[in-house]
Design a protein around this nucleic acid. Structure first.
Lengths: 347, 347
DNA sequence: TTGAAAGCGCTAACAG
DNA sequence: CTGTTAGCGCTTTCAA
C-alpha cells in the first residue's frame, strides 16, 4: 500500500486554477482578492472564476495565514464554558465573530492553573489574532501575562476591574446592585443577606456595592460566601436563613446561585416571596423558568459582545495602537419577576 | 536581552535560534522535535536548548501546519451552543481535546442553514483536522456534505441514526425510554404523554421508542410536539394536560423541555409528582435544582466524548481507513429523583 | 494588465 | 551527526 496520491486531503491550489485558466497563480490571487476595481481584464477575470468554480477552489487559510500573519481566529478563555451565563455569552460572541469573518477557538480555563500553561497555552495563542478573556480565572493576574506573551491583543470581559494593561468591558455591577437595592427597599425590606460567590472579579464588585450600601443602612447586611454555582447558592442560603433575626431579602451573586437558593428555600419550607425575597444577577434564560420566576439584573450581552469584538479588531488592525478607554461599563437593567415581594407582615 | 529588530507580531524563528546556537535551522527543528533517541550530539542539543530558552522560542504553529498538514484544531458544529446539555458536552470535549493536544474551533450551527455555508463554512473546515457534529442541524443531511467537502474526517454525536457515511455515537435513546417506562409503570401509571421536541435526530429516536411501547399498551400514548427548549416544553405540557382523561405521567424529550413542563404544572396548580409525574432526558446539572428534582436519564457524556476523540484521532492518523463500527450506542442510566411518584389514588 | 520570483517559518530528503 | 536544499500554498513586490 503506497501512499501516493496524497493530494486527496488538500484541495485544489491556486496553481491548479491558474493552469486551467491559462494564467499565473498571482493572477488567480489578484482576481479572488480583488476588493476594489483591480487592473484585470474582464476576460481573464472570467476565466479565473470559471476555473475556480469548476475545481471547487477555495484558498487554503493556513497558507494565507502564514503569508499574511492573520489567522482570523480568536482565542476565547472562559472561566467555565458550561456556566449558563457564559455558555450563552460564548454563543453570542461566536455568532457575531462569524459574521465578521472570525472563528472562536476554545481555551479551557477551569483546568489547572500553571501546569499546562507554560507548555501549551503560550504556544496556542500564536494560532490566533487575539484573545478574549471571559470572566476571571483564579490568580489570573499572575497567569494571564504568560498566556498573552507575544500576543498583546487581548480584551477582558466580565472580570470586574482589570489590570491596566488589559482593556476591559463589564456591566456596571455596582449600578446593578443599586437597582436591586432600591427595588427591595421600596418593598419595605430592611434586613438583607448577600450570597457571595468568592474570588471572582465581577462578583467581588457586586459584593463591594452591597457592602457600601449596607454601611449607609441602619441594619448591617450579612454576607455568606460559598463556591459559585448551584450547590454553593444552596448552602449559603441555608446558612443565611439560620441567623436570627433572619434577612427578609437575599441577594445572590448571580442567577445560578440564586436558583440554588430557591431550591434551599423550598427544602426549608420557606415560600418565596411571601416569606423571603430572593434576587439574582445576569438574567440567564433559566431565570424565567424556575419557581418563582427570578427577579434579576439583565446584562446587555449582545452589546458587550459587540464592543469586545470592536476593540479586538481595532487592536488587530492597528497593532500598537492601544484602546483609548481601558474600562467600559455598560448599563444593567432591572427585571422584576416573581421572586420579590413586600416584606412579610410580621416584620 | 537586547532586541533591536522590529519584531512586531512574529516572535523569534528557528533561524534566530539557529544563529545564536551556531547551527542550522534544521538542527533546531530536530532537537526540538526529538521524540525518540536522535542522532544529535549532546553538545549541540544543549546549545540549541539554551538559545531557544534565551529567546523564548516556540515554533510557529501555522508554519508547522502548512508544512505538515496538521493544525491540531477540531471544528465543532453544535446545534445550539448555549443549550445546557450541549454546553456541558462542549466543555467536556474541549477539555479532553486539550489533553490530547487539540483545540476546539466553534462553528455555529443554529444560524441560518444554506446561506453562509457555501461561502464560508466550506472554507472554514479546512483550518481543521477534523469535524465533530454535535446534535443534528435542520436538514443537515443536505447541508453536511457541503460543510465536510474536502474534509471527510468527521464524527457525529447525539444525532440519532446518521447517514452511513458518517460515524456516529449516541446514547441508546430507545433503552433510555424503556428504563423510564418501566420505572413509571412500576409506579402504576397507565396513561402516558410525550412532549416531542421536533425534528431532532436523537429526540426522534426517543419518540419512536415511546410510540413502540405505546403500541403494546392498552391505552395509547398522546404526543404533543413543540420547539425544543423551555418554552416549547411549557406549551406542550399545557396542551397535554388539557386532554381528558389526562395522562398521569409525562415524558419530555429532554430535560430542558421537562423543566419548562414543570413550570407549566406549577402555573396550572398541578403538584408534581402527587398529581402528575414528569420525566426528562439527559440529566443536566439543573435537573437537581428544580422543584421537584427531576427524574431523568443520564447520558455518559465523558465516555461519549472520549469515544468521539478516539475515532477522530484514529481517522486523522489513518486518513482513508474508515471506522469499523459506524454506529455506537452507549448505555443510558436511570436517575430517580422527586418528579415521579405513584399514580394518583383516584385513578 | 500580467508573470516571475521571493519568501512567510517550518520540516524532511538528501547529501556530506 | 549536521548543513543544504526544497518546498507546503499563498500574496506581493518588481519587471515587463
Amino acid at each position: 500500500m503506497d501512499q501516493e496520491n496524497e493530494r486527496e486531503t488538500t484541495g485544489p491550489t491556486a496553481q491548479d486554477v491558474a493552469r486551467i485558466a491559462g494564467v499565473s497563480s498571482s493572477t488567480v490571487s489578484r482576481v479572488l482578492n480583488s476588493v476594489k476595481s483591480d487592473m484585470i481584464s474582464e476576460a481573464t477575470r472570467q476565466r479565473v472564476f470559471d476555473a475556480a468554480r469548476q475545481l471547487g477552489y477555495s484558498p487554503n487559510p493556513i497558507a494565507r495565514a502564514l503569508r499574511g500573519g492573520q489567522t482570523n481566529l480568536l482565542y476565547l478563555i472562559a472561566r467555565e464554558i458550561s456556566d449558563p451565563f457564559f455558555a450563552n455569552f460564548i454563543a453570542v460572541i461566536s455568532g457575531q465573530a462569524r459574521a465578521l469573518g472570525y472563528h472562536i477557538v476554545l481555551g479551557n480555563a477551569h483546568s489547572d492553573p500553571e501546569e499546562a500553561l507554560e507548555i501549551s497555552h503560550v504556544l496556542d495563542t500564536r494560532h490566533c489574532d487575539g484573545v478574549i478573556v471571559l470572566g476571571d480565572l483564579k490568580d489570573d493576574e499572575a497567569v494571564l501575562p504568560k498566556i498573552l506573551a507575544g500576543n498583546h491583543t487581548a480584551v477582558a470581559l466580565c472580570r470586574g476591574q482589570s489590570p491596566a494593561w488589559m482593556p476591559t468591558i463589564n456591566v456596571d455591577n455596582s449600578k446593578g446592585i443599586h437597582l436591586l437595592w432600591e427595588h427591595l427597599t421600596s418593598l419595605g425590606h430592611q434586613r438583607f443577606g448577600f450570597i457571595d460567590g468568592g474570588w471572582l472579579g465581577d462578583i467581588r464588585e457586586r459584593r463591594k456595592a452591597f457592602e457600601n450600601l449596607s454601611m449607609t443602612w441602619p441594619i448591617p447586611g450579612m454576607i455568606q460566601e460559598d463556591a459559585d454555582g448551584l450547590e454553593g447558592g444552596y448552602r449559603a442560603f441555608q446558612t443565611l436563613i439560620s441567623q436570627t433575626p433572619r434577612p427578609t431579602a437575599i441577594f445572590a451573586a448571580d442567577d445560578t446561585m440564586a436558583i440554588g437558593a430557591l431550591q434551599a428555600a423550598q427544602d426549608a419550607g420557606l415560600r418565596v416571596p411571601e416569606d423571603i425575597s430572593v434576587v439574582g444577577f445576569d438574567d440567564i434564560e433559566m431565570a424565567h423558568f424556575v419557581h418563582p420566576r427570578l427577579t434579576t439584573i439583565c446584562q446587555p450581552v449582545e452589546e458587550m459582545s459587540r464592543q469586545v469584538l470592536n476593540w479586538i479588531l481595532e487592536m488587530i488592525a492597528h497593532k500598537d495602537h492601544p484602546i483609548e478607554n481601558h474600562l467600559l461599563s455598560l448599563e444593567p437593567k432591572l427585571v422584576i419577576r416573581e421572586s420579590t415581594g413586600p416584606v412579610p407582615l410580621d416584620e
